[in-house]
Write a protein that binds this DNA or RNA. Structure first.
Length: 508
RNA sequence: GCGCCCAUCGUCUAUCGGUCAGGACACCAGGUUUUCAUCCUGGGAAGAGGAGUUCGACUCUCCUUGGGCGUGCCA
């Protein structure tokens, strides 16, 4: 584990949370962590941070692993392949966090907090706009005997980090140098939740240490919680790793990349026919530049030449057109035989056609009907007359169609599994929400999905397209409506979302 | 509101005190091509503002402005 000059082997990690679709930002972080580790002859670890019991799903974890494999970023240790520090799934390590929580408690670095969710909500309300937010430290001032008594009485509680009242935390970021944050601005973070699971902060620090991570390369959104992590390393008596916070990928309006404005799921890029090496190349170009100025490069080349200090800090705007350009270059440079292989690896293969045949056969008069009928299952954006969406809506006006599409987007996010039955269930529910018959709402979706008022069965088609491309088609439909001057304007959309959330639960 | 981070063409970026501020995407013009696409050539396009340091600032310091993130028993 040590090189001849006694420097520990470089070990980096990517630590995705398996909630929802595999995010392009995860690939971005994985790429830089991988490149840095390999540049220094080290290891790259994949760790699954599934400590949010409510939102983590096995499907999401599988999709993340599959996406990283598709991108060609290999990991040396992970939940699938194991390793010397297994398990690599945090939900299987709860005992470790509990134990470390006890150590913090014993050392006085953490304290039990018995405050109710209601009290905390009230606290937050009263702090709106205040200079200092966060927990008020009520339970930190509990007499030790009191706390011990309530603890042994089995009163529900969480474990909170004890933070110094004044002074400041001096930290070092590899890319930014020294950073100072007043302790007074650091919240008494919950470390162990009342369900016995750790929060990110505890689990992350404990695992990074136990797994021998030497360099934590992560998103800039973590910079402001670095003091908490430093404090934890100190409390455990551990030497902190080196930290490098990467800028966040941005939307064209500079906000953090979100699926509202960009496709963010790696699965979308795969289904829409992007080449993994083109995507990697493009991501590598964001926030990084080779010393020799080259702009076309492979993962291996990046791993060979990567210099972490050449990372730039301005948040890069994700430019879909530029990605398309790069993808086109890669595609056109392929030998015909190689292109054919790529097409087969994509969707032009027996397995995919076999799924389509039973859907198309009942609708066939000539063999020549087949390909046109199936074409929409091989496309990204479809070209159709904008009027089609409203024409086929069976009575809904423009805004009504927009509302229907929006509702569908929210509802289609929900089922953890993606198959014909789950999708049918979703649309039955949408019909209920809209107080319409399934038969009435479906034509809009045939238009959005296939660019025609009628097509192969929609639920099966969506199952084949995958969740992310399906969602994308709905997004394109909404954009198409906008070209007709039909759009849910800011307030309208907010109101719709609000009432939707209130009635039907989380939407994002 | 408060804390922290950031700041070069529309976008991604190069420059590590002295450059006609370079490249890529996008855009525009021309050429090749039976069309289109590709490809080739050319063009317009940037140091947010103000102080200071210096012989000399895009580059170093400070202020202002702008943007981002954080402010959850999410990660």
């Amino acid at each position: 584990m040590h090189t001849q000059n006694n420097q520990p082997t470089v070990r980096t990690r990517v630590a995705p949370s398996p909630t929802g679709a595999p995010h392009i930002g995860t690939a971005f972080m994985a790429l830089f962590n991988y490149a840095f580790a390999k540049r220094h002859g080290g290891q790259f670890i994949l760790r699954v941070e599934d400590t949010d019991q409510a939102r983590s799903t096995a499907e999401s974890e599988q999709a993340i692993l599959a996406s990283l494999r598709w991108l060609g970023i290999p990991w040396d240790e992970g939940p699938d392949c194991g390793g010397p520090h297994a398990p690599y799934r945090q939900s299987e390590r709860t005992r470790i966090y509990l134990e470390h929580g006890r150590r913090l408690l014993a050392a006085g670095a953490a304290y039990p907090c018995f405050c109710t969710a209601e009290r905390l909500a009230e606290l937050r309300r009263s702090q709106a706009g205040a200079d200092c937010a966060g927990y008020d430290g009520l339970c930190a001032r509990l007499a030790p005997a009191d706390a011990a008594r309530r603890l042994s009485a089995g009163e529900p509680h969480v474990l909170r980090l004890r933070v110094p009242a004044d002074g400041e935390c001096a930290m070092r970021d590899r890319l930014r140098g020294e950073i100072r944050i007043p302790w007074a601005k650091v919240d008494h973070q919950v470390l162990l939740k009342s369900d016995g699971y750790p929060t990110y902060h505890l689990a992350n620090v404990v695992d990074d240490h136990l797994m021998g991570i030497t360099h934590v390369i992560r998103g800039e959104e973590w910079l402001s919680s670095l003091p908490k992590h430093i404090l934890l390393y100190q409390a455990f008596g551990w030497t902190p790793p080196e930290f490098a916070h990467l800028p966040l990928l941005r939307n064209p309006d500079k906000s953090k990349l979100s699926k509202r404005r960009n496709p963010t799921s790696i699965l979308y890029y795969r289904q829409a026919g992007f080449l993994p090496e083109a995507l990697i190349n493009y991501l590598g170009l964001m926030a990084y530049s080779f010393a020799d100025g080259r702009e076309i490069f492979t993962l291996a080349e990046m791993a060979e030449h990567f210099e972490i200090d050449r990372i730039s800090l301005g948040g890069p705007v994700f430019d879909f057109q530029k990605l398309q350009h790069f993808n086109g270059r890669y595609l056109r440079s392929l030998a015909p035989a190689a292109l054919w292989q790529r097409l087969q690896a994509w969707l032009l293969n027996d397995a995919y056609w076999q799924n389509i045949i039973p859907l198309a056969q009942p609708r066939l008069n000539q063999l020549a009907d087949f390909v046109p009928q199936a074409a929409f299952l091989f496309a990204d954006r479809l070209d159709y007359p904008p009027a089609l969406l409203v024409q086929s809506s069976g009575g809904l006006d423009g805004p009504g169609v927009a509302r229907l599409l929006k509702t569908a987007q929210w509802e289609l996010e929900k089922p953890p599994a993606w198959n014909t039955d789950a999708i049918r269930g979703v649309f039955n529910r949408i019909a209920e929400i809209e107080k319409m018959k399934l038969k009435q709402i479906m034509p809009v979706f045939y238009a959005a999905l296939a660019g025609a008022p009628a097509a192969l069965p929609a639920f099966d088609a969506m199952a084949l397209l995958g969740r992310d491309l399906t969602l994308r088609r709905l997004h394109y439909a909404l954009e198409t409506l906008e070209t007709q001057g039909i759009a849910l304007k800011g307030k309208q959309l907010k109101d719709l979302e609000k009432s939707y959330r209130a009635a039907y639960g989380a939407a994002d």
